[in-house]
Simulated scan of single mutants.
Amino acid sequence: MNKDISIIISTYNSPEWLTKVLYGYNAQTFRNFEVVIADDGSDEKTKKIISEIQKEVFFPIYHVWHEDNGFQKTIILNKSIFATTTDYILMTDGDCIPREDFIEQHIKNREEGYFLSGGYYKLPMKISKQISKEDIYLGKCFDINWLKKNGIKFSFKSYKLIAVGIKSWFFNFVTTTTPSWNGHNSSGWKSDFLKVNGFDERMQYGGEDREFGERLINKGIKSKQIRYSTVCIHLDHARSYVKPEMIEKNLQIRKETKANKKVWTEFGIKKE
């Protein structure tokens, strides 16, 4: 049976976190999907856990990998877009565990001429480590009461976990956060991605996802806010790969995209 949606999950040498994330997709209410792992040069440990977990989960997993040559997420994402077999793509990260209705909400809210902009609920390292397979399958790690028992303090951000139905719609409507392309939780039509030539492969960490979304908007694709409808929890991790020169270079590329209302990148899927 043909799949309805492709889930692209980016990862780099985080097999423990990726395992938890894949368990989250094994608990989804919407089940007609494929997973493409966009692997930015992980070692054999990641390949091994993907092989092992494929025997346990119901969905197909395709492992798209290239050699480690520094932070090259944009390159592996473009390769992964090309590897998908469906018309609709959801992008997320290998440190974001999806709630059971995560894909269902993206499917329900998708619309021609739009991309969907979701968010996440960030966890500290202690709880990130503590979450077990059972906690994911039973949904405990998305239960605000369970999280409070384990040291999380209630805040306005907690409404991402407890707002459902009309409440989630209301918070999506009133939030002052601009719906942008967020690499941890956004989805759109593959045909739209190709119209802007995918991600700009000159870009490394820092705004590379936003720049992609800005070109989609320049193309006339609108953004829809669903940050309170599509829940995923973000596991903590270090960011040793972040360098000031990466941030500065990306800022300059984004400035050019905004100033010139650029739609197409010459450094994307298709090379001139």
Rank of each mutant, 00 (worst) to 15 (best):
G207H: 01
A83C: 05
G151P: 04
Y114T: 03
T177V: 14
K122N: 13
G188P: 05
K140A: 14
H184A: 14
D192K: 05
M203L: 12
Y205M: 13
W169A: 13
M91I: 12
I136A: 15
G94F: 02
R110E: 10
M125H: 08
K140W: 09
P98A: 09
W169H: 08
S158Q: 00
P98T: 07
G165A: 03
Y205F: 10
M203T: 00
M125A: 06
N197H: 13
Y137D: 00
Q204K: 11
F212H: 10
S180F: 11
K148G: 11
D209C: 02
F115E: 02
P179T: 04
W146R: 05
D209V: 03
D209E: 11
Y121M: 03
R110L: 07
D87W: 02
Y159V: 08
D87Y: 01
D209P: 07
G165T: 03
I103S: 00
N197A: 14
T86C: 04
L138C: 11
L194F: 13
D143S: 10
F170W: 14
M91Y: 06
E104I: 00
K157N: 12
K195G: 07
Y137S: 01
F82R: 05
E112S: 15
W181A: 01
N145V: 13
W169D: 13
E111I: 00
T178D: 04
G183E: 04
R110K: 15
G165S: 03
G183L: 02
T86S: 08
I131N: 03
S117Q: 06
F193D: 05
Q204V: 00
G188N: 04
I127G: 14
N172Y: 07
I127N: 12
T84K: 04
E134F: 00
F102E: 09
C141M: 14
F173G: 13
K149R: 14
Y205H: 12
F170V: 07
Y88G: 08
G207E: 01
K157L: 07
F199Y: 15
V164Q: 12
D192W: 02
Y88S: 09
Y121T: 04
K140M: 11
E201Q: 09
